[in-house]
Computed example of a mutant assay.
Amino acid sequence: MTAPAIYSTRIRHTRIEPVRNSFDYTSYSWYVDVDALPRLPRWLGPFARFRAEDHLEPDPAAATDTLRSRVDAFLAGQGVDLCGGRVTALLNARVLGYVFNPLSVYWCHDADGSLRCVIAEVHNTYGQRHSYLIRPDGDDRAEVDKQFYVSPFNDVSGRYTMRFPEPGDTLSLNVVLHRDGHGPFTATVRGTRQPATSRTVLRTQLRTPLAPLVVSARIRIQGITLWARGLPVMARPDGRQKETVQ
């Protein structure tokens, strides 16, 4: 089993055109073994609750709905069987009943411990989610076609280049969206690992209180700012438009 950890993170978003804009913010993420989710003391419980329904889609055949059963169900749909291999995940927990996971990453290993594939799960600010199965090369890089509407300023065209090395003492994730005729949109996550002790959890809450709610609010504020600067809004696939953005 992988011991749970907390990464203090800095997330940065950069777009080149048609409006040049860059912003970053601090937050934190949990790094967990999906078969051994953290159990905190009761007095800390409201600040970190892990619920299967916050991630992926359920397996209708599973006797119990767990994060592991959801991972296995998604992989089975892609023709992948880990044969019980370890799955670690970087994600956000619920804080005072609220959770927002712009990006969750699952590192999926075979029974011998070798990395088989990675799941990148994306949530937008409209309450929708989508998961990509990626198969990194020897440099932890992979490419995948964009299939999910995340930002009202980018349609679903384009291709992602992703680099998701497994976290160690530090965390370094990179996502670049390439679209024909457009400059790239880049998102990075950098972090430093700390053991998930009660003291660390408390210190993290004091430093970045209500982090999921704050991140969601910051994303919406940035979207409104870009809209006010004249960045054109792309219709959602269902024809609706909104001014909020990731």
Rank of each mutant, 00 (worst) to 15 (best):
L40G: 02
N101A: 05
T161H: 14
N154L: 11
P41F: 06
M234P: 00
R86H: 13
M1K: 03
L56V: 07
N101I: 07
G230E: 11
R190Y: 01
T200S: 13
Q222C: 08
L96Y: 00
Y98M: 05
R218T: 04
G230L: 08
V99W: 03
Q246D: 02
A228M: 12
V233W: 06
P209D: 02
I134R: 03
E57H: 09
L173W: 11
P212V: 06
A235Q: 08
A52W: 04
R20Q: 09
D140N: 13
I224P: 00
L96G: 00
H130Q: 08
A211D: 11
C117A: 14
G239H: 09
D81L: 11
R199C: 01
F164R: 01
H130L: 07
A76C: 08
R116C: 09
H109C: 10
F148A: 12
A142F: 06
I119M: 08
A142T: 09
Y160T: 12
A3P: 02
D110Y: 01
S104T: 13
R12W: 00
P167G: 11
A196F: 02
D112M: 02
Y149C: 10
R159H: 06
V189C: 12
D238I: 13
S22I: 09
G45S: 15
P46A: 07
C108K: 03
I224R: 12
E53I: 11
V122M: 10
T88I: 06
P58M: 08
Q128F: 00
V71F: 09
R70T: 12
H109S: 07
R220Q: 09
T14G: 04
G45D: 15
S29V: 15
V189Q: 09
L171Y: 05
A76Y: 04
I11Y: 01
L44H: 07
G181D: 00
T88F: 05
T14M: 02
S27G: 15
R141H: 12
L133Q: 04
N154M: 12
S114P: 01
I16D: 06
G45Q: 15
R141T: 13
T197E: 03
W30D: 14
P152I: 12
Y7R: 10
A36V: 04
N174H: 15
H182G: 00
L90M: 14
P152L: 10
G84P: 11
M234V: 13
I119W: 03
R116Y: 01
Y25E: 02
P4D: 01
T197N: 03
G113W: 03
R229I: 07
F164Y: 13
T200A: 14
Y25N: 07
G223C: 03
E243Q: 12
I221N: 00
T64F: 11
P212F: 04
L91Y: 03
T9I: 08
P60Y: 05
S157P: 10
V95A: 05
R49Y: 05
R116P: 01
A63L: 13
D24A: 15
P232T: 07
G181N: 03
I221M: 12
E243H: 13
V105F: 01
R51H: 14
A89I: 10
A3I: 03
D112P: 04
G127P: 04
